[in-house]
Amino acid sequence: MTRARETSATVVIVDDDDGVRLSLESLLEVAGYTTVTHASAESFLDSDWPGGPACVLLDLRMPGLGGIDAHHQIRNRDAELPVIFLTGHADVPAAVQALKQGAYDFFEKTGFDHGQLLERIESAMAQHRQRLAHRQEEQALQSRLLTLSERERQVACLAARGMPNKIIGQELGISERTVEVHRGRVMRKLALRSAADLVRLERFLDD
């Protein structure tokens, strides 16, 4: 079983050329990827998108909605989904411009090297896996933050700013010992191991 299969990675192929879609679909499925194909950008944008690690191979020039405009809509919906443009030689300047606007990479369709394309796709997948994991960690943290009482959150906010327990107690009108108790509960509820972990959460606590 390939790494792609193990992580349920999906490559979405968006190209109006039937031959290109079939060729890429065959290549990627042999490499272990799940593939989804669309003959137009509109079809892809109207579809259900993959929920796990994914990458989009997007033709730069298509009838109807072109690749550049489709890319703008993709980024508006999910800025973390990596897009690799498929281009002709004459389209390279436009593809370079797309990179500046957030595309992950571009690849010339004419005489392309299969190995290089697979390497770029896996690199994009690795980035997307990392971003998805980070998003899941933040969502889990937000859920844990909801378990804090109002007083615990107050203590956590001040502690995250590096304030000593004694000063926190003075700020909140409670004893230093009470601060220690609340701080201990915060550490347990948020699954934190050190004061440094708490400091790194300051931006979440201030939300």
Rank of each mutant, 00 (worst) to 15 (best):
Q154K: 13
M163H: 09
G162E: 13
A98C: 07
E176F: 03
S123T: 11
I121N: 02
L60V: 05
A191C: 09
C157Q: 15
R188L: 02
E108D: 06
A126I: 00
A70K: 01
L57G: 11
N76M: 11
F112P: 01
P53G: 09
D113C: 12
L172T: 14
L57K: 13
I121Y: 02
K189V: 03
E137D: 09
L172D: 11
Q127H: 11
C55V: 15
D197Q: 08
M163E: 14
Q130A: 09
L172H: 10
L145T: 08
S175L: 07
D113E: 09
D69E: 15
L192F: 06
L198V: 01
S123Q: 14
E137S: 13
T110D: 14
R185T: 04
L86P: 02
L158D: 13
L65M: 14
D59R: 01
R129Y: 00
L118F: 08
E171P: 00
V155N: 12
L145P: 00
S194R: 04
E176A: 08
I68F: 02
V83P: 05
T87Q: 05
R61F: 00
G111W: 13
L158Q: 15
T178W: 10
L118P: 06
L145E: 08
F112N: 03
Q154R: 09
P164A: 13
G111F: 12
Q136I: 05
P53Y: 06
N76I: 01
E80Q: 10
F112M: 02
M187C: 06
R144G: 06
A95N: 07
H72V: 10
F107L: 09
Q73D: 08
M163A: 05
T178D: 06
Q97G: 07
A196I: 05
L118C: 08
Q73N: 00
Q73V: 01
H72R: 15
D69T: 04
H71L: 12
Q127T: 04
V155Q: 13
V186I: 12
G162S: 12
L141C: 04
Q127R: 12
L58F: 10
D113H: 09
L172G: 11
A160E: 08
E138V: 15
V186F: 00
I174E: 12
L148Q: 10
F107E: 02
V92Q: 10
H89P: 00
N76R: 13
R144M: 12
A90M: 04
S149Y: 03
A195G: 07
Q136E: 15
